[in-house]
Design a binder for these strands. Structure first.
Lengths: 156, 156
DNA sequence: CAGAAACTGTACTGTTTTAGTCCTGTTTGT
DNA sequence: ACAAACAGGACTAAAACAGTACAGTTTCTG
């Protein structure tokens, strides 16, 4: 049924929590406020930092924050950060792996139409649209509030 | 990585094979010409018949054919036939199942934006677009040829 | 400079899902 | 009556995933 894995699901919960703050947040802090177990939160944050969505600071008072303005982050990026390239089958160019019949396979390359279509639709859903308050707020207000929080977190 | 399962992958191979014929095809016949193992082909065809994409005829000279004009079948239908409703997480209305925190879950319902976006994009990719010859043929010619084959299969 | 807070990377294990197979039953044409 | 075909369900082996744990590195604070 075309599922994303649970880690990705949790990631959105944690990221939304992070969107609500205006400073760096430690993994332990986010675990407490989101209800997701610490080791899991930790795994997610590390991965998101590795792929450039978040940035991390070590040491006392360290933690995680967005590496760039959160309003510009799409769900496609979040999903790809945690699951790798969007590819509905193994038989696509980007995914490296290929079945043993690639060269004679009549389907070769055709699922790409599907991949591209999905990828495009996910590019158009922004992470901040996943925030519960997104449905009650004016989109411009939302974008501004998020940008202000991000600026505050960056200078702190 | 947002994969469809292998059965769905094979299903497209088998369906494309079926698109090339102008008569009912038995499971054994399709297995031979597509290279997919018979028990697997059989499983796929049964499921596709159950969900109304194909129709079956029993007995000697029986087999499978499209239940309606193939040009009208979308990839969304094929995927849903084999995997159930398109739902990237368990926490969505259509999927019945829900995590234990549904009522307090701040994400509840938000993945729906993603589901709807994906579903819409898959509605716009037609099964016949997956045919290898689709890229070399004029779309109208393709549609007509497919319709003629289907008509022939239905009256036979 | 010592210790605590926080991130980093990797490895392991139990559970769940998936893939693939097989068997028994029913329908239909010759 | 027999053989060709579909129908439905049950079972097993393999792969993927979720969750956890641990050993290491960096940085702030007193």
């Amino acid at each position: 049924m075309l599922k994303v894995n649970k880690l990705t699901d949790y990631a959105v919960v944690v990221l939304c929590d992070l969107l609500r703050g205006d400073r760096l947040r430690s993994a332990a802090d986010l675990a407490t406020s989101s209800g997701v177990p610490l080791p899991t939160v930790s795994k997610i944050l590390k991965q998101l930092a590795r792929t450039g969505i978040l940035q991390s600071a070590r040491g006392v008072n360290g933690g995680y924050g967005f590496a760039r303005p959160p309003a510009g982050i799409s769900m496609a990026e979040v999903i790809e950060a945690l699951e790798g390239p969007i590819a509905v089958t193994g038989c696509v160019e980007e995914s490296g792996e290929c079945c043993e019949f690639v060269h004679q396979c009549p389907m070769s390359g055709h699922w790409n139409a599907v991949n591209v279509a999905i990828r495009k639709s996910l590019d158009e859903v922004r992470l901040i649209d996943m925030l519960p308050e997104a449905r009650f707020m004016d989109p411009e207000d939302l974008t501004r509030v998020i940008a202000e929080r991000h600026a505050a977190a960056m200078q702190a």
